[in-house]
């Protein structure tokens, strides 16, 4: 049994219970994509690319009144300690769907009828919380592609390890912990777009975890904002309101 929180209240990587892993977001990292971003969240390293709006193929999938959003979350074979077969696994297919559904409420897809917007997420290195990091990166890539959005989307997980509520679980905490609660929000609109819970939490623990995750999302949003402002207005120019 791994000791997830020591007697000083620190987690295995030395963080406090309400501390995020180091976070870095870069915008426009891929020349050939319409929008792209790169995120490092702890040991997670993910590239997001957005293509579109473009014509839908096969054409019968096109919707007459809005764009079709498609998402592909893929883990590179070298992203985990044991080689992952490159074909899409059940988990990747499910996470692709979950990410698409988390981003869809933020996009004004009605502006692009009969088109498709494709999001590609390549996980280069995974260390727990890659779906949340993927959502955060995708939102930045979509904004970089100039797709009309109601708000940015930010995601972060909270969870329970060793009986304590913590945020931003890494791989070990995710596997050895008692519960995992990934959420995604639109920070300006105060709306939740993703809500999952794996494990068991008491109602008061759940409430605490939810509030901590929302607060963490707001911190991540500031990094998103800074990354976009840096790209379009130059470094050191971030900030508004």
């Amino acid at each position: 049994m791994v000791e997830l929180i020591n007697e000083k209240g620190l987690r295995i990587d030395g963080r406090g219970v309400d501390e995020l892993r180091p976070l870095r977001i870069e915008v426009g990292v891929l020349k050939n994509a319409d929008g792209s971003s790169y995120i490092e969240m702890g040991k997670n390293k993910i590239v997001a690319a957005v293509y579109g709006p473009k014509e839908v193929h096969p054409k019968h999938l096109a919707l007459p009144d809005r764009s079709v959003l498609r998402c592909r979350y893929h883990m590179a074979p070298f992203s985990v300690d044991v080689r992952k077969p490159p074909q899409p696994s059940r988990r990747e297919i499910e996470i692709s769907k979950v990410i698409r559904e988390a981003l869809e409420p933020a996009l004004i897809l009605e502006e692009y009828p009969r088109t498709a917007i494709n999001i590609y997420l390549e996980v280069l290195q995974a260390d727990g919380g890659s779906r949340c990091a993927g959502i955060t990166a995708s939102a930045v890539a979509l904004a970089d592609a100039g797709i009309s959005m109601r708000d940015m989307v930010v995601a972060c997980a909270a969870g329970k390890i060793s009986g304590q509520v913590v945020i931003d679980l890494d791989d070990t905490e995710d596997k050895e912990g008692d519960a995992d609660l990934p959420i995604a929000i639109m920070p300006n609109l105060n709306q939740v777009t993703l809500f999952q819970l794996d494990g068991i939490m008491a109602p008061e623990e759940f409430e605490k975890a939810f509030n901590m995750a929302v607060s963490a999302c707001h911190q991540i949003y500031e990094v998103q904002r800074e990354a976009l402002i840096d790209k379009y207005f130059g470094k050191g120019e971030a900030g508004e309101e």
Partner: peptide, 12 residues
Amino acid sequence: VERLKKTIPGDR
């Protein structure tokens, strides 16, 4: 003033 003009999706 220049800073205040910069905006990203969702800004009021």
